[in-house]
């Protein structure tokens, strides 16, 4: 069928509303099929891809990131697929042959100046989607704001170009971040010079470290293993080097680590919330800067 014939068919269809052809042979029907296919592709990508791309998530707040990405992608897929389906179809069906090299325009299209109900429907659907997004975001965000009693306190200090982590009550200040498993943690984040970004990517939490300000963020690490803290706010010359390893360990390992860093056994046991007797401090001298404890390797 030449384009002119196709075009006439479309024209007829518009003018002769009475005996419209079956749905799936009309442009709307064909676009619907393409839309279904595109939506399916989008949903499949949205559901399966983030899991493979994200680093191994180590906490509930980290899983929130994953869930949000999946949920939003699935919601957005039909909208994106609709635009793509229509654009795709328009190129197949409504583009006269050789129109790209012609100096003469194709015949005028139908003079549609708008469609009130369609516009209202479009705005209505997007409003609905926005509300869903907002409710999701508010729910997740408020669940992350809950403070837990007995949370482990960690004072995080950013400076050009190093993070230091202080464990109050133990006298330990380290440049690596060790966290006990399944214990809520509160990070009190500040900076000494310029703004840095304290970002635990596997735990899905981030906040800036601002000089003279203290910002609290919370999470509960659930999965043992190592991670890397990377400064996420450009902070000058050696910003790229401002990162360090950290790891989530068992409470007993955590207590032992505190002791190896110079804490007394009782303070370490208290901070790690384990019985003092369970700690088996190694003979490591506190003055030795042992090779960095990287915890479980990533």
């Amino acid at each position: 069928m030449s384009f002119e014939q196709q075009f006439d068919a479309i024209e007829n269809e518009i003018t002769e509303e009475g005996d419209a052809p079956p749905f799936f042979s009309r442009p709307g029907g064909k676009i619907f099929i393409i839309w279904l296919v595109f939506t399916a592709i989008g949903v499949v990508i949205g559901v399966f891809a983030p899991h493979h791309l994200l680093p191994g998530l180590q906490s509930g707040t980290g899983s929130d990131v994953w869930a949000t990405i999946v949920f939003f992608t699935v919601l957005a897929a039909p909208v994106a697929a609709f635009v793509y389906a229509l654009a795709f179809y328009s190129l197949l069906a409504w583009r006269p042959k050789k129109s790209g090299s012609s100096d003469e325009p194709p015949p005028d299209g139908p003079p549609q100046r708008g469609n009130g109900p369609l516009t209202i429907l479009w705005v209505g659907i997007s409003t609905l989607l926005v509300i869903v997004l907002l409710v999701w975001g508010m729910t997740v965000w408020s669940s992350q704001q809950v403070a837990h009693d007995g949370a482990l306190q960690v004072n995080v200090t950013g400076q050009q170009w190093l993070w230091t982590y202080e464990y109050p009550g133990t006298g330990v200040t380290s440049r690596t971040l060790e966290l006990p498993q399944d214990r809520p943690v509160e990070f009190n984040v500040t900076a000494l010079d310029v703004i840095h970004g304290f970002w635990l990517d596997t735990m899905g939490i981030q906040t800036d470290a601002n000089p003279n300000e203290n910002t609290v963020i919370r999470t509960t690490p659930t999965t043992l293993g190592g991670f890397v803290v990377r400064c996420s706010q450009l902070c000058g010359l050696n910003h790229a080097f401002m990162n360090n390893k950290g790891s989530v360990v068992t409470p007993t390992q955590f207590g032992n680590w505190l002791v190896s860093q110079g804490a007394t056994t009782s303070a370490a046991a208290k901070s790690a919330d384990v019985p003092e007797s369970s700690l088996t401090p190694s003979s490591t001298s506190t003055t030795t800067a042992a090779p960095m404890n990287t915890g479980a390797s990533q």
Binding site: T157, L162, T164, T173, R175, L192, S285, T287, T288, A289
Partner: peptide, 16 residues
């Protein structure tokens, strides 16, 4: 210093 942590020796033999 801005941060007393750097008044300590880190990472040398014997930490000294």
């Amino acid at each position: 210093l801005n941060n007393p942590w750097f008044s300590k020796v880190h990472g040398t033999q014997d930490g000294t």
